[in-house]
Amino acid sequence: MFLSSKQHGGARVVTVKAERIDAAVAIQFKENMRTETDGGPERVILDLSEVSFIDSSGLGAIVAAMKHLGADRRLDLAGLSPMVEKVFRLTRMDTVFTLFPSLDDAMTELGG
């Protein structure tokens, strides 16, 4: 499907199995994120390493997913390509999320 997830240490790692998160899939992404994260651990890491393009609809869907987790859980982002990272930077959403260059970096932070 669109997302796959696994438990890794104390975190739920959700991997996006798509090249694009855009208007055509934003709603599906939001729904799938709920399924993958409901009832899981406090920390969720969204692995974006397979994603090469995201638009403002995709960005909005990630913000919605983060809000859905509630105040006691966090959503970190890992493996952003330069183009994906640019969308977060230009909208200043890079100040709202913690961005890790890779999933390994995000996992290392988990232990630290």
Binding site: M66, T91, V96
Partner: peptide, 23 residues
């Protein structure tokens, strides 16, 4: 321009399109 100090529940989920286009 996004106010990064907004409480999480108040963060916008849209309206970024023109911000991106202008930049």
């Amino acid at each position: 321009s996004l106010d990064p100090g907004l409480p999480r529940a108040d963060l916008p989920e849209g309206g970024f399109g023109w911000t991106l286009i202008h930049q």
